[in-house]
Nucleic acid binder design. Structure first.
Lengths: 160, 160
DNA sequence: CAAATTTTTGTTATATTATAACAATGTTGA
DNA sequence: TCAACATTGTTATAATATAACAAAAATTTG
C-alpha cells in the first residue's frame, strides 16, 4: 500500500503545516501573486487539519486566534487559494481542504473518509484521461473534472 | 460519435418527458415505493429540461403550474428521487437533473456543458473501476464517486 | 518621493441553498 | 374501523455564499 496520500498516526502536523505554508510562500512568489496576511491566515486555518472545513468554521478557527474576518473576506481568500491550487474545494461537502501536493498533473482526485473525515488527494492522470476520452466519444470536450470518492480510509479499516 | 448521451436538435422533449415519467412509474412500482403526486410533480419539473435546475427554481416552475410547495417539501421529494436514482444531484452546482438512463452500472458520470448548460450522463463503469483501484493502492476503499465533468458539448462546439 | 492607479480588505446588507420541529393528512393492513 | 406508519404541510431557522460600496494598503508612474 502506498503510504503517502493519507496522513497517518505518526504524522507530525506542526511540521507538515510549516512545510505547507513555506511551499505556499514559494509558489506565490514564483507565480507573482501575493500571499497576504489574511490569505495566509485562511490557508493556515484550512491546513490546520486534514479534514474538510467549511468557510464558517474557518472564521471560528481564526476567531480563536484573535482575528475574525467577515464571511466575504474568507470566501475571497478561499477563491484566491483555490485559483492558486493551494486549496481544494470539496463540492460534495461545501467545504475546503489544503492541497498537500506540490503540483498536480491535472485535476485533483479527492478521497474522503466517511469515518474519520480525513481527506486525501491523489494524482490519477491516466484515469482522468480515460474518463475524458470516454466523454469525447459522446462529443463532449471536458475542461475540468470534479472527482470525489467517499469511502473508508486504511486507518479506519484497520489496514495500517 | 455516440449520439445518445446528449439530447440534440431534433429532440422531441414532450415525448422524452412522457417516457421518463412512465419509466419512473414502473421503477417505483417495481421497487415497492410510492411515486406520489408531489414527487411526480417535482420529477416533472426537474425533467422539464436537460439543464441543471435548483430547488428554488423547481418551486418557481411548479408555481407556474398552480402548485407552490415549501422548500422542505421539494427537498424531501428530491431526496426520494435521488435515492431511487431518478434524479442526480449535481454537487458542483447545487442543482439537479433528471436521470435519462434506465439503470446505471454504478455511479453516474455527468457532463455539464458550460455553454448551453445541458447536462448529460454516461456510464463509465470501467473508468470508475480504474479510479477505485487506484484509490485502493492508497488504502482507500471507495463507496461512492462524485464525478462531474464540465466542458463544451458537441452541439455547442459545432460538431453535430 | 508624491500622486495616481490598482489590488486588497473592511463594512453592511442580503441572496441562495438546505434543514429542524411538530402538526395535519393520507395510506396500509389487521 | 382503528392503529400504525408514511407523507405532506406549516412555520421557522440554519448554513452557505455573494453584492455593493467605502477604506486602506501596495504598486506603478511621473
Amino acid at each position: 500500500m502506498l503510504t503517502d496520500a493519507f496522513p497517518f498516526t505518526r504524522h507530525d502536523h506542526a511540521r507538515c503545516l510549516k512545510r505547507l505554508l513555506g511551499r505556499a510562500d514559494e509558489m506565490c512568489a514564483r507565480a507573482g501573486v501575493r500571499l497576504t496576511k489574511l490569505r495566509r491566515a485562511v490557508l493556515r486555518a484550512v491546513a490546520g487539519s486534514h479534514r474538510a472545513i467549511g468557510a464558517y468554521d474557518i472564521i471560528d478557527a481564526m476567531e480563536r486566534d484573535g482575528q475574525k474576518p467577515a464571511p466575504i473576506s474568507v470566501y475571497r481568500a478561499l477563491d484566491f487559494l483555490v485559483t492558486q491550487g493551494l486549496v481544494h474545494k470539496i463540492e460534495s461537502r461545501n467545504a475546503f481542504v489544503a492541497c498537500c501536493h506540490g503540483e498536480h498533473a491535472g485535476d485533483a482526485v479527492l478521497m474522503i473518509c466517511e469515518d474519520c473525515g480525513v481527506v486525501a488527494e491523489m494524482d490519477a492522470g491516466a484515469e482522468l484521461t480515460a474518463l475524458n476520452a470516454r466523454a469525447e466519444r459522446h462529443g463532449f470536450h471536458a475542461r475540468h473534472a470534479v472527482t470525489e470518492l467517499s469511502g473508508i480510509c486504511g486507518a479506519c479499516c484497520g489496514d495500517v
